[in-house]
Design a protein around this nucleic acid. Structure first.
Length: 212
DNA sequence: GGCCAGGACACCA
DNA sequence: TGGTGTCATGGC
């Protein structure tokens, strides 16, 4: 079973995932930073706080004090460092792109990635999530679920690096934003639904191929 | 009451 | 470059 087979099996089993769960590209970026090592439920609470406060926009985050931002982000955990990371991104956006998010997101993908990785607090997964789900450009997102699931399937080594895993997927799948988008979301759904802990795989569509 | 969640970074050797 | 500690709330 190759990667495309797995993708198709997951897709027919779980259906379309409609990711990223956000109303705007900016909300995707905020969510991508807030969800670092954090359950999505807690991220949703923090995003609700930002909406209620009327600051879920580049201008809003730019103007709000870091101290106030911390209090709004509390439900998502790591609130001090996440407030700083959001501020880092926003200050970068205003200093280098005049706060114009559309302009920034329309950059050529490899340039967009290097710009994002230059911001303190945005690592590879967060950068790729922003490129794929906010800018709608084809880059594969690797996360802890991807690693866990495909280690169990025997398709990646346990010491494989982020870039090695990313490259594996991109080399064996059509370079298609829609496929990258759905596949990552389906992996998350699979891992959350059936692969979390042992015993696993009662409902797993990959059961017969998982050697865990 | 311990473990973990859609990571990233500083520090150290 | 690789390993380890830190950041912190909420659900189970």
């Amino acid at each position: 079973m190759n990667l495309l087979d797995i993708y198709n099996r997951l897709k027919s089993h779980f259906g379309k995932q409609h990711w990223w769960p956000a109303d705007t590209p900016f909300e995707v970026i905020v969510g991508a930073i807030l969800t670092q090592n954090t359950s999505w439920k807690n991220v949703e609470r923090a995003i609700e706080n930002l909406k209620d406060e009327g600051v879920l926009s580049p201008e809003g985050i730019y103007r709000i004090s870091e101290k106030k931002l911390q209090t709004l982000l509390k439900p998502s955990g790591f609130f001090k460092i996440k407030a700083k990371r959001l501020k880092n991104f926003i200050n970068f956006l205003f200093e280098k792109y005049e706060g114009n998010l559309n302009h920034f997101l329309s950059l050529e993908p490899s340039l967009l990635r290097s710009e994002l990785l230059g911001i303190k607090g945005i690592g590879k997964e967060t950068a790729d999530s922003i490129i794929l789900y906010a800018a709608n450009k084809p880059t594969f997102v690797v996360d802890a679920y991807t690693r866990r699931v495909f280690e169990r399937l025997g398709m990646i080594e346990k010491d494989a690096t982020y870039d090695e895993i990313k490259q594996l997927f991109e080399e064996h799948l059509p370079r298609d934003t829609e496929i990258y988008n759905e596949f990552h979301a389906l992996i998350v759904e699979l891992a959350k639904d059936t692969c979390k802990k042992r015993p696993v795989c009662e409902k797993c569509p990959l059961e017969n191929n998982c050697n865990f």
